[in-house]
Amino acid sequence: MAHTHDEHKNNLDSHDEHSGAHHIVSIPLYLMVFGILMVGTILTVLVAFVDLDHIFPGANTLVALTIAFVKMTFVMLYFMHVKYSSKLIWLTAIAGFFWLAIMFAYTMQDYLTRSQGVFNG
């Protein structure tokens, strides 16, 4: 086989995902994840109508995004099989969000520090 594995091969290429890709997630597990997603959806709608901003400004946003993040994590881990995938896939998924964070952070560092605080609309 061409893919004779050399001891030098970087562990990013660890071929354990060959077994991982064929990992079959059981139907009950899928249904459980589905349940979590549904609960999250209902929760996020209900919470949105409650004024949490009196706790601290932006609390509503924070809660809504946290729930969205949790939902996303479950979709990625189980529906998209990341949990059973190689490190490279983990790295890829994380890198995507890391770069998104770079774009947000470095754009906002401008908008949040405009010295006059005013952008004349």
Partner: peptide, 10 residues
């Protein structure tokens, strides 16, 4: 017209 702070960081 970006902020001075952002300019410094960049």
């Amino acid at each position: 017209g970006q902020s001075i702070y952002a300019g410094l960081v960049f």
